[in-house]
Design a protein around this nucleic acid. Structure first.
Lengths: 145, 145
DNA sequence: TTCCTTGCAAACGATTTGCATTGGA
DNA sequence: TCCAATGCAAATCGTTTGCAAGGAA
């Protein structure tokens, strides 16, 4: 199912947060771990061959996101897609193809990530308490260029 | 209503695109021009004191976005917020409140924007033809902090 | 006239919730 | 045991659409 290392990290994380890791929730996490990008409730529903009711799916996604295991990603058409949180997947940014819509992950070289973090801190400064950031780079992927 | 310079630029842009600049559409643009960040249909509806029916509002937003006068921004809670396109507003980034979902515009100081552009160019490098970028800074706004 | 736009209400699709039942610590 | 999780169906909420009436060219 889920890669074993995620399995134990998540189990521990949820235990600490007093959240049960039930079969339904494990199923959702396992499905997402198999994916190569964020997925919506409907997409997971299909992927799981409709064995898990949509309402349960939504509830699992909400609980797991609340617990910090998943992070929601709001995309086109009002769909919310979820992916494993950054502490599991690693901090990354997105390359979004303006032609085909494909989303690729990019990890910045440490020095650039540091630069970006300093930049964010400077900008947020007094008017805002920054807790995170996301850089989206728009352009054309190799296939579309 | 709308700052006169926007008024004429938009009017010309729409004429070129064969799209009428009706009173309803002018109202929507004027309302957005007064805002300091992207706004959803519901927010504009309230701002306009419910004088403009929601369905008309949605239709105006769709037409104006399609014509390139507005750009949509998909945010928390499945809401789509719109703002004047960058060719009108100038390039900027967003501060997004993770509690209330409010979105504020930030313009980076020129040196930081330059830094960011260099960073983007470096990252995109060979695998991607970058045409733009968007930095989202997540955190808590003054009201929610 | 001939399109395009508007308003109202009904329709939609994604997500949430009430409630009775099941399951896990 | 006992509270949390689940499933189903009904309810919500943002958004879209059908249709008839109101402009503008």
């Amino acid at each position: 199912m889920t890669s074993p290392q995620f399995e134990s990290q998540i189990r521990h994380h949820l235990a600490v947060h007093g959240v049960r890791y039930t079969r339904g929730r494990q199923t959702v996490v396992a499905a997402l771990a198999r994916m190569d990008g964020p997925r919506s409730a409907a997409e997971l529903y299909d992927q799981l061959e409709r064995t898990l009711p949509l309402s349960s799916l939504y509830r699992s996604l909400a609980v797991l996101a609340e617990a910090g295991v998943l992070s929601p990603h709001h995309g086109t058409k009002g769909l919310t897609r979820y992916e494993l949180a950054e502490w599991l997947m690693g901090h990354h940014h997105h390359l979004v193809c303006i032609d085909c819509g494909a989303v690729d992950d990019v990890q910045l070289p440490p020095d650039l990530e540091t630069t970006l973090e300093r930049l964010v801190a400077t900008v947020a400064a007094d008017r805002f308490v920054a807790t995170g950031h996301a850089l989206e780079i728009d352009g054309r992927c190799a296939a579309c260029a």
